[in-house]
Design a protein around this nucleic acid. Structure first.
Lengths: 349, 349
DNA sequence: GGCTTGCGGTTAACCGCTTTACTTGCTGGT
DNA sequence: ACCAGCAAGTAAAGCGGTTAACCGCAAGCC
């Protein structure tokens, strides 16, 4: 590979001048610039990013740190990674992936190597130790998700309130008044302080309260098999529920299958809305799921933008909350007559 | 961050000696080593990987290049990336993701930057231009997938023959004799030279020939909605088929849903086997799919091993073909009586 | 005792680029 | 004619390591 030295020699200038035109960092006369550009073209010059990183103390590499253990929002994860990498590349950054455990020693180790300028933190816990760690190491970062009190931090996240609002409104407008939420099982140790579950829960309780319907919340572990189980559980605990919002992608499909096995028809007997789904996933279900899609692509992009903004010293990007788009499937319909009667006895907002 | 200079000063040795103990690259007396290690611990020294990369001309960074356009084997992609990253990290390498288009100019550009020591190529076409490019640039690489003639290349891939054998044997042993393959639609431009489809096709024709059953091949575009369409197609074209092997994860779910809609029961009327599936995905279907899982984790690991081996100058790893594991679901059963009769008139191998 | 050897370290030359300080040649104001 | 000011370039000092070459010294050998 040709170096700047080679280019400089060939153009008859000093190496510094080459640097100036490559980075456009100091004015250079048109004629010299031309000679240099010609030389670069002839030699097929590409600047060595490692040397540049060392000299400029900025590697232009970002890390995406995500817990390898469990991929809760897994289906959107590829979209997310791809989107983040593309956006990074459009800002002339690279993206490395760090599948770190929640153990922050591992993260400290990686950060200490000085390979990256900034870190994107996925799957943030409400009291995530990694946040404090990065702060104490002086490493810029942005969150996908957020801690309990994310004031002053750069973050992007799903707008759980609006997402759930979309789901519930849809059911409500169809006439449902017994609407359950199936969310993460917070008795599972690693789930108990998981932001999305907590926030979805809060949103549900707020909405139930506002609209005046009874709160029915079930916890499910992530995974299709658990979705099947929860179908039984739901039927046992709250047989009169006509509308279900489920917040776990794999479990949603399992729920559908489970209800089917139990002889409960969807959507005739029960309507199901998935509060998070990749669009293709929703289509793969039978019946196709009515769902709010996961804004993975958008979040990946925004997270990188926020981080880059911070790194380049611009005004920080304000926190971004995003909702996926509502996709009408065939898993929702007006409640059966009995359900509707029940509803009539209640306050209708 | 403490530098080697700091450590050297504190331990009262030269910076070279520090380098030798850090890299264990030259013998150092026990006492000096101890002093240096103490100094490192006290200062919290972490060697700067960028400086090391520049000096040693090895960045210890690997790139994972994958076409961002379409993620055909998408569900296993996260597993794959994670697994590759973990394996890389266990060899003290980092992994950057390059969602490049098939345009090899983009790849050439990235390679030219000198950031990485080697490249993992995903979604390799039978006549992938990127292979020649990397060779001509002298950049070590390993393939996930393989070109038409991969002789001399480092690659890992799915063992399509064995995978399909598992699927067909299962159906055959249940008594099926009319067994169709639903694979990628090779009339779609970007699919026509796609290795997995071609190889799965070949494997099917070979097996059909060996066992003496009629070849019935349908092409489907990737995606659940197309799976639904293909259900109709299948029923129209070959209504007497009792066993189906489908090689597209999203379409498999769609196929199930489509058959259901058409009133064809699975597995009573038709048995369905997915020749590639993430385990959770298979469970999410209704009925749970009998499937051969995608060996994404294993392939990610092996690909990195092959590449690292090449980089470190060991004897190259021979090509690795892997089959996922067979998962018995509830989408397969003996064929209906009429189907079985038909079969009896044929050669039973 | 003189000479080779091997051990444990040190010196210093890079790796390829960025960036600050400095030179040089002009222009122009007075 | 003199000096300030500016534009265009250059020289050189790093950035934080790696590594080849070298060096002093004690042991080993005849």
């Amino acid at each position: 590979m040709a170096t700047m030295r080679d280019v400089a020699d060939r153009a008859g200038v000093s190496i510094a001048t080459v640097s100036f035109v490559v980075n456009n960092t100091k004015p250079v006369s048109a004629s010299t610039r031309e000679r240099i550009e010609a030389a670069m073209a002839e030699l097929g010059f590409r600047r060595n990013v490692v040397a540049r990183a060392l000299a400029s103390r900025r590697t232009r590499i970002l890390a995406l740190a995500y817990p390898a253990l469990e991929h809760r929002l897994s289906t959107s994860a590829v979209e997310f990674i791809t989107s983040a990498a593309r956006e990074a590349s459009s800002h002339d950054y690279h993206l490395v992936v760090w599948p770190v455990s929640n153990d922050s020693a591992e993260l400290a180790d990686l950060v200490g190597q000085g390979l990256v300028d900034g870190v994107l933190l996925m799957e943030v816990q409400l009291d995530d130790p990694r946040v404090g760690l990065l702060q104490s190491m002086g490493m810029p970062f942005a969150l996908i998700g957020r801690t309990e009190d994310p004031t002053g931090l750069d973050y992007v996240d799903i707008d759980f309130d609006t997402s759930l609002e979309l789901c519930v409104s849809h059911l409500w407008d169809l006439g449902h008044r017994r609407i359950a939420l199936i969310s993460g099982d917070q008795s599972v140790p690693s789930f108990e302080r998981y932001g999305p579950y907590v926030r979805m829960d809060q949103a549900y309780r707020r909405i139930a309260n506002e609209r005046g319907f009874e709160e029915i919340v079930l916890g499910v572990r992530s995974g299709a098999r658990y979705g099947r189980e929860i179908a039984t559980e739901l039927t046992r605990i709250a047989p009169d529920v006509t509308g279900v919002v489920i917040f776990d992608e794999p479990a949603a499909a399992g729920l559908l299958a489970g209800l089917h096995t139990l002889g409960r028809r969807v959507p005739e007997d029960v309507s199901v809305v998935s509060a998070i789904a990749a669009i293709d996933q929703a289509f793969a279900c039978d019946p196709p799921l009515t769902a709010v899609t996961a804004p993975g692509v958008e979040l990946g992009l925004l997270a990188v933008q926020a981080l880059v903004r911070r790194l380049e010293g611009g005004t920080p990007l304000p926190p971004q909350l995003r909702t996926g788009s509502f996709v009408l499937g065939e898993s929702t319909a007006p409640p059966p007559a009995s359900g509707r009667r029940r509803a009539a006895t209640r306050r209708t907002s």
